[in-house]
């Protein structure tokens, strides 16, 4: 898994609540049997019309907004457990998703792929949106070790929470399977003694 330590980047703002994984990657694109290439279809039906033409009013088609950080409304990633959503976000080029609330399964899937989901308070999220819409060149600085997210232009900073185990996985590029395989003996003991 890719390591994550620090990132400073401009952002793509998506101030919509309850973005489900069917929007992130519609089911008809789940037929692939590898993990690659899902980025082309990220937010497919919001990005492109039925004639495959980019929709000019969608933020990802607006060159004013770009960067490695996606900022979205609350309850991001709800719905289907498809990990393809995390793969699509990563494949498109996002390393971080910021929201005021994440759906459980998406959050786990993102972490398992080295994409950092950062939960911030509603007011902080509103500040990011306001700042980015006022000045699209606004950047966010993220430091995983210190668990901080800062709006560079205003200096507003928030200390976010992350499970310490998951934090160390991201910083070191380890995944769960590496850890859990090391516990094989405990698993076999459990099976014998139940």
């Amino acid at each position: 898994m890719k390591k994550f330590e620090k990132l400073a980047s401009r952002v793509v703002p998506l101030p919509i609540e309850n973005i489900d994984t069917d929007q992130i990657i519609p089911a008809r694109f789940l037929k692939a049997t590898t993990r690659e290439g899902f980025g082309n279809n990220l937010f497919r039906d919001w990005r492109f019309d039925s004639n495959e033409q980019p929709k000019a009013d969608f933020v990802m088609n607006n060159p004013t907004y770009q960067g490695k950080i996606l900022v979205a409304g609350k309850n991001f990633g709800c719905g289907s457990s498809r990990e393809h959503a995390a793969w699509a976000i990563q494949d498109y080029g996002f390393d971080v998703v910021v929201s005021s609330f994440f759906a459980d399964i998406f959050k786990g899937n993102a972490l398992n792929n080295g994409v950092l989901p950062i939960t911030v308070p509603e007011e902080f999220l509103e500040k990011i949106f306001a700042q980015v819409f006022a000045n699209p060149a606004t950047a966010l600085a993220i430091d995983l070790e210190a668990q901080t997210i800062r709006i560079e232009e205003t200096g507003d900073e928030f200390i976010f929470e992350i499970n310490p185990y998951k934090k160390s996985c991201l910083i070191n590029g380890y995944d769960d399977i590496d850890y859990i395989l090391s516990q094989r003996e405990a698993i076999e003991n459990f099976e014998e003694n139940r």
Binding site: I105, G108, N112, I177, I180
Partner: peptide, 20 residues
């Protein structure tokens, strides 16, 4: 409960899951 594909691999490999 539902899981992602990385977790499917985890269960394949160990019959266990890391879960809070």
């Amino acid at each position: 409960f539902g899981i992602g594909t990385s977790q499917v691999e985890q269960v394949f490999a160990t019959q266990c899951l890391l879960q809070q």
